[in-house]
């Protein structure tokens, strides 16, 4: 057991975490020293004690963030009564997490399908490879913060509001790694394997289904991992311009309006946890798929 943990890198991970936490705690005093609550406190120990328990610190201490995370998830009712019956309680952080996750997943699905479709088109039509690729690359050089409000407003003006505009922004970001990865993956079979299909007089569809697609699967999963995490970023960015009512983005925004740094930090930690969870799910799917495809363990 111990050996397995050691080989799994648990010791270095824990050591690094401890070092980061220690530095964080140490930084709390210098970062917060200009706050009025600390003005008349004398003695290093006393000053740290105050610095670690401030209500609106510039840099909150880790235990404050964990406390807020606990209070705003497990410590708050997830459902509450309303005129429409039971609804998700907006005071609970998980409500906001769910709002963001649903937009993330919708955007991820749209982005992945679009990304694959573009890659298939690019691989099979030579003219598209030259004409489409520069546009695809250019699309990603536009700052998403600039284009997100345009998408929200444009879709809002035709009556599309809520989850879909956020999903569109997610998809705008997440199709890109899939296209790049899949173009690479679909063209990865070497000349010999393609010649083999030629000697069978295989159709393009057969060559695609039996050779190009399976060969691209490992790269697909690598792309999906990048794609899901930027889908999450896209969904959060999509929640900012409208001052959305719900979602992690809304939570960040309201936190910054009211100087609730602990709330902001706990929302950020929630984002990190969600991203880790989503990537872990894809990694699991990857392992199972590659195992089913006979990959060397």
């Amino acid at each position: 057991m111990w050996d397995r943990l050691r080989r799994g890198g648990l010791v270095p991970v824990l050591t690094l975490t401890a070092i980061i936490l220690a530095m964080w705690y140490l930084a709390c005093l210098p970062m917060n020293r200009d706050l009025p609550q600390l003005a008349r406190v004398e003695g290093l120990a006393n000053r740290y004690e105050v610095a670690w328990g401030l209500e609106r610190p510039v840099l909150p201490a880790p235990h404050q963030i964990i406390g807020e995370l606990y209070a705003s998830t497990i410590g708050t009712r997830l459902l509450r009564e309303s005129a429409d019956g039971l609804v998700l309680n907006p005071r609970n952080l998980l409500t906001h997490a769910w709002v963001t996750i649903s937009a993330t997943l919708a955007g991820f699905v749209i982005g992945v399908l679009l990304g694959i479709a573009l890659a298939v088109a690019i691989v099979h039509v030579n003219a598209l490879r030259r004409s489409l690729m520069p546009w695809i690359v250019a699309s990603q050089s536009i700052p998403i913060l600039a284009i997100a409000p345009i998408i929200i407003v444009a879709l809002g003006s035709v009556g599309i509001v809520g989850l879909l505009p956020k999903a569109v922004i997610s998809a705008y970001l997440s199709f890109f790694p899939v296209t790049i990865g899949m173009v690479k993956g679909l063209t990865s079979p070497d000349a010999m394997l393609l010649d083999l299909m030629r000697t069978y007089n295989a159709s393009r569809t057969q060559t695609f289904a039996k050779l190009r697609w399976p060969a691209a699967v490992p790269l697909l999963f690598a792309s999906l991992k990048v794609s899901i995490s930027i889908s999450l970023v896209g969904a959060i960015v999509g929640e900012l311009p409208t001052g959305a009512q719900a979602g992690i983005g809304a939570r960040l925004l309201s936190g910054s309006y009211y100087g609730q740094t602990v709330q902001i930090w706990s929302a950020l930690v929630m984002v990190a946890l969600l991203a880790a969870l989503l990537v872990a799910l894809i990694t699991l799917a990857e392992k199972l798929t590659l195992k089913a495809m006979g990959a060397r363990p």
Binding site: D195, N201, G294
Partner: peptide
């Protein structure tokens, strides 16, 4: 002859598809 699949071709490398048994 190729379209009628009249020959089998064996390459320098086995050229097996790794995801197939």
């Amino acid at each position: 002859a190729r379209l009628k699949r009249q020959y089998g071709y064996v390459f320098q490398a086995p050229a097996l598809y790794p995801w197939r048994t």
